[in-house]
């Protein structure tokens, strides 16, 4: 396996986000839910580049995004991050209850509108929201 430089690692994520059907991707920390990276999600703080890193700082005014969010149905990265984070936690509790030595490896959540693919790892969680194949 290639020991990728940071930019190559990020390029892998960018590739994912550019795949057809993928609406948004999100990398959050498993430990505290901090957002490491996101694409396709409106964030309170990130600038125009959707693949840019997201240092979510508090001083940015979020007002300019309000309208866009409402219309397109895109959620804020923080929303998704916190919801997914607690969902992964709940799934962890479920699996723990069934078998103490087991562990969540993959969550695919199909909704009427799209699918969430959540890949929990010991340190990070990767989330992708993509369109479901037309059925």
């Amino acid at each position: 396996m290639a020991q990728n430089a940071p930019e190559e690692t990020l390029a892998l994520l960018a590739r994912i986000s550019q795949k057809p059907g993928v609406q948004s991707t999100l990398v959050i920390s498993r430990e505290n839910g901090a957002i490491v990276r996101t694409s396709g999600l409106i964030s309170n703080s990130s600038t125009a580049n959707p693949n840019s890193t997201l240092p979510a700082s508090l001083e940015n005014a979020p007002d300019s995004y309000s309208n866009g969010r409402k219309e397109s149905g895109i959620h804020s990265a923080e929303d998704v991050a916190s919801i997914v984070w607690s969902f992964v936690g709940a799934a962890g509790i479920l699996v723990d209850g069934l078998d103490k030595e087991d562990e969540v490896k993959l969550l695919r959540l199909r909704t009427k509108k799209n699918e969430l693919v959540i890949i929990p790892d010991p340190k990070f969680i990767l989330v992708a929201i993509h369109d479901t194949p037309p059925a």
Binding site: S29, N32, G33, A34, I35, V36, P55, A56, S57, L58, E78, A81, S82, W85
Partner: peptide
């Protein structure tokens, strides 16, 4: 709402 810390 977001209870988690944000990264610098």
């Amino acid at each position: 709402n977001f209870p988690f810390k944000t990264l610098t």
